[in-house]
Amino acid sequence: MLSIEGLSVVFGGVSALSAVSFEAMPGEVVGIIGPNGAGKTTLFNAIMGLVSVNSGSVHLEGKDITGWPSERIALAGIQRTLQTPQVFQQISVMDNLIAAGIAPKRPILTWAAFRLPTVRRFEIDAKIRAAAELNQSLLREEGHKLAGDLSFGHQRLLEIYRALMLNPKVVLLDEPLSGLTTQESQVVLELVRSMRAAQRTVLLVEHHLPSVLSVADRVVVLAEGQVVANDRPEVIQRDDTVMRVYLGEEDMGIETTGLL
């Protein structure tokens, strides 16, 4: 269980998040919506330890992980994807997945060069797991391609698959559908459902409202760094204030930047 309590982040005197609190259970998909500048990405960065938190706390399964360095939070079981997918461009898709299988072991690369058994063991393990994951994925025909040569949508998918290689308890998806084709979007939503089936917690920041409402078990609405609603999608959908907050922003036609 991920529980966020009174989380506040201030950037140069401007409050980006103020006293945000909510919980998310294993096997629960929580949609997070709100206009640009509402603090969605900052929330993810704060959970992940990528920005420093001014007050409040983040607990994962009862353990206080506030203020931990990101790599330690990742090892504790939280993964996030980024708005601009960051794949490792000059190695193959397969090697991207393998990297994610190996990284948590923090190997000394010199031992890897000498193929020491200690390193070799988890290298082989990572290779097997990566192959299995690749075979179930949409990228199965592209395993040998350089990740940088993939289409944008496939880079986004690769980033999600890579995150899953770490077998996370919590997955934070930051605009996973933006820039994807309809077919790719379906694949991502299917992935989200399978994460739920695997008892992972999913937090989903996404502008495409129908998708969020269709897949989420619960929706948290952020505005100006505060939680203005937290309820089942059906309820949120009927809530006038919420829809005005959200749709008002849609009217302005700003979809892509998602600042803060």
Partner: peptide
Amino acid sequence: ESGSLLEAVRSSEVA
């Protein structure tokens, strides 16, 4: 296999 981590570091420190 571990050598992939070199490219990981070069490509994206955050990732």
